[in-house]
Simulated scan of single mutants.
Amino acid sequence: MRTCVSALLAAAMLAGCGTASETPKEQAGTVIGAVVGGMLGHQVGRGGGRAAATIVGAIAGGVVGQSIGRSMDETDRMRTAQVLETSPTGAPTHWRNPDTGADYTVVPTRTYASAQGPCREYTMDAVIGGHPEKVYGTACRQSDGSWQAQR
């Protein structure tokens, strides 16, 4: 429990480090990346090093999430939503954004029902400015049919 609080605290600190010029999608990417990174760090860390692994994971996830959030435009978000809506679990979908040059591959990894509707876990491999990045996320379908990343 204390480690989860540490992860959320690290995510909050990262969100608080945003600048006035940071876009909402960068801010969202930072928070989502920090939470996911913190959870992954918590799973990897053992014993007394678990808290440190959680915090490092949150920081690294925040940096990756911000970068992807900055580079994704509306077309990329729509393509990601389309993958979540129509692609079978385990099937990779790849595209290249002709405007930004970024490459994305999204793979739904698990589908499950929640109180608000269907949710899907996914991985996203992105190559942005020649730098490969990987994000693990969960998104749920909203009542209007859109997909929203969960924090």
Rank of each mutant, 00 (worst) to 15 (best):
G38N: 01
G61V: 11
A51D: 10
V44R: 01
G18L: 11
G62R: 10
G37T: 04
T80I: 13
G65C: 12
S71L: 08
T23A: 11
V64R: 00
K134T: 04
M124R: 13
Q116N: 12
M39F: 03
L14Y: 01
T109V: 14
R96D: 08
V63C: 05
G117M: 14
C140R: 10
Q150R: 15
S21V: 03
M78I: 14
G47M: 07
D76L: 06
A28K: 07
C140N: 11
S114T: 15
M13H: 02
A28V: 14
M39C: 01
A58E: 00
S87Y: 14
G57T: 03
T89S: 05
T105H: 02
W147I: 04
Q148R: 13
Q27M: 12
R2D: 12
V135H: 07
M78S: 11
Q116E: 11
R46M: 07
A28Y: 05
M13P: 00
T86S: 11
M39P: 00
A34Y: 01
Y122M: 13
G41P: 03
G18R: 15
D76A: 05
R110Q: 13
G145H: 13
T100G: 07
H42Y: 05
G145K: 13
A102D: 14
Q82H: 09
E85N: 14
D99K: 10
I128M: 09
Q142H: 08
Q148L: 13
V106C: 01
H94Q: 05
V44Y: 01
M1W: 06
H94V: 05
R70S: 06
E85Q: 15
E22C: 06
G101C: 07
D125V: 08
I55R: 02
R70E: 07
H94Y: 04
V5I: 13
P24I: 10
G38M: 00
